[in-house]
Amino acid sequence: MKSYLAAAIQMTSQPNLQKNLAEAEELIELAVRRGAELIGLPENFAFLGKEEEKLKEAKVVNEKSQKFLKTMAQRFQITILGGGFPVPVEGDSTKAYNTAILVDSSGTEVARYQKVHLFDVDVPDGNTYRESSTVMAGQNLPNIYPSEQFGNLGISICYDVRFPEIYRHLSHQGADVLFIPAAFTAFTGKDHWKVLLQARAIENTCYVIAPAQTGNHYERRYTHGHACIVDPWGTILADAGQEEGMVIAEIDPFRIQQVRRQMPSLQHRVFI
């Protein structure tokens, strides 16, 4: 595996599917022009609105999101992660799965993950989030996708970042790169976002690619931004700040090997 460039895209998605997809396409094209071959879109990239509104639009958002990702992958000859969109639950019109999929350059879906940990939290800024009111929790831990071009890729979604066991599961399978697409709240993000990303990178000696949402999406819904790419030593290679756009960084397999020689903690695990 050779070194390559990866991009983490940062958006301010709205309750407007067509507008979001058009903006995502612009950012993907810009990332490709800058040399990115592996690109991640944030959680809720296609639609970020009230939970009941998202559920109502879930069928259309699901269909158009999947078509969009496959079209982008083929057009630009990239591998792309759609970091989270609603997929209706068969037989239950009140719930959808928060789903991330990875699509390769042929337009083929190669990995799928349904978010396991749901964000049911009363945030101290006065906002209350009840993701479980409209989202069905996934029942399976993610598996890595072994890519000759990009290494072993692991997928998670947003709130998962607070549960290190999911990343230990991925590293036990041999993960080299961990995707953590998010729509992290502005209040919690300022204190926890970067620390958690660095922790997941350090403890698993993996690169972390963390696409993000930023800014005001509707009413009082604000997200933190700061899409990041972090290296296996925990160094933040790129940080998007709070503006829409992207970050790009080199993913270097030699760096992974170097860090794992310097700090062989994965070899010293007692409990797996």
Rank of each mutant, 00 (worst) to 15 (best):
Q66E: 11
L196V: 08
V161D: 00
H192F: 08
A22T: 14
S132N: 11
S13G: 05
Q258Y: 10
R200E: 10
A31V: 12
F85H: 15
A186V: 02
D176S: 11
T94L: 07
T188E: 08
D252H: 10
R261I: 09
F184Q: 00
S93K: 14
E43C: 07
R269G: 10
D122N: 11
N216L: 09
Q267S: 13
A46Q: 07
V89W: 06
R260K: 14
V32Q: 05
K70C: 11
F85S: 08
E26K: 14
E25A: 13
H224M: 03
S171W: 00
V121W: 07
V230H: 03
G40C: 00
E23A: 13
P146G: 00
R220W: 04
I155N: 05
A137L: 01
E52K: 15
G225M: 03
W233K: 10
R200M: 14
K56G: 00
L102Y: 01
A240E: 06
R261P: 01
A186Y: 03
Y129D: 01
N140P: 10
E250P: 00
F68G: 03
E26L: 15
I251W: 02
S105F: 06
Q267C: 11
F85W: 06
E203N: 11
G234I: 06
L153Y: 03
L141Y: 12
S13F: 01
N140V: 14
G138M: 01
Y167P: 01
A46M: 03
N62K: 07
Y222I: 04
N127V: 14
Q77A: 11
A111Q: 08
K70F: 06
S65N: 05
S156F: 04
E26I: 15
Q10Y: 09
